[in-house]
Amino acid sequence: MFFDRTSSIVVIALFACAVAGYFIPDWIMNQLMFGFARALAVLGLLVLWRTGLISFGHAFYFGLGAYTVALLDINLGVSDVFLRLVGAVLVSGVIGWIVGFVLRNYRDIFFAMLSLALSMVLYGIIVKTEALGSTDGFSISAPTFFGFAPDGKYPLFVFICVVCAICAVAVQMYLNSTLGWMTTAIRDNEVRVEYLGLSVANAVHVKYVLSAVLAGAAGCLMAMALGQVDPDSMVNWTASGELVFITILSGPGSVIAPFIGSVVFELLRTYAFEWAPHAWQLIVGGTLLTIILFLPGGVWSVIEKVVGKKS
């Protein structure tokens, strides 16, 4: 089935989260919103990772999505969530498509560092440009839904859950398609793929644009969830590092993994900061080391083992 078991689990789980959001405290809902929003960018990195590519600069698209929302809001007064999302997706998708013509020719460390360089160029432009908010960024008006401006963040939470479900199912369908299946094939042997009659460059380009669109959507959702954008938390290399961290923490095994990994990361960072305000990076870094050493398949490998044993 094209709409397979994983897609069903994603839809049911995010629907359950959307319903539960009505009853849970705001701080938990916020953590879930931040986690789910960031998970979309991680979903894009997962597609790249399965292809054998890692981007150290995906905050470039995350930031583009977030800043598109801010600029639409400030300059055009756009507050509708759908218009903001479409704008962020279009901007990140078109720029990803253009940049993809260069990056699709590179692999390994060159791909990783070129993407990092790109994000730092955007970061440099933003912090030096007053019109883009410089180092302070912008505050964003509360989102509206077809002209309605509901109180509280619950409607936005539901919207994020719906967008995440649609994106995760779409990525799962893509991974089940011939082109999606080529992620592993390209990672394994580009020469054979080319000699079977498929353009590796085109296939990598499609995956890159897909990951850019997902990161742009993630930035858009995060900007609305936070109510502000700023270059340090959204475009700087540390933001890209966080996305890579969550990708490793999640593991590449399933499209469900980024959502679990992102929420675990949000909780880990929140509690690490609470327990050790001056050394929270030590806890986060130690966790990353532990994951790499003992759980190279990420948290998803633990879930697979547990579910595998039960079944």
Binding site: T184, D188, N189, E194, Y195, L196, G197, L198
Partner: peptide, 24 residues
């Protein structure tokens, strides 16, 4: 023509060192 176009045209090849997808 790049290799994929040559393949699509009707010329295919195998390799001295087998080119397979090793993790599949």
């Amino acid at each position: 023509l790049p290799p994929r176009k040559v393949t699509q045209a009707g010329i295919s090849r195998s390799f001295q060192v087998s080119q397979v997808f090793s993790t599949m």
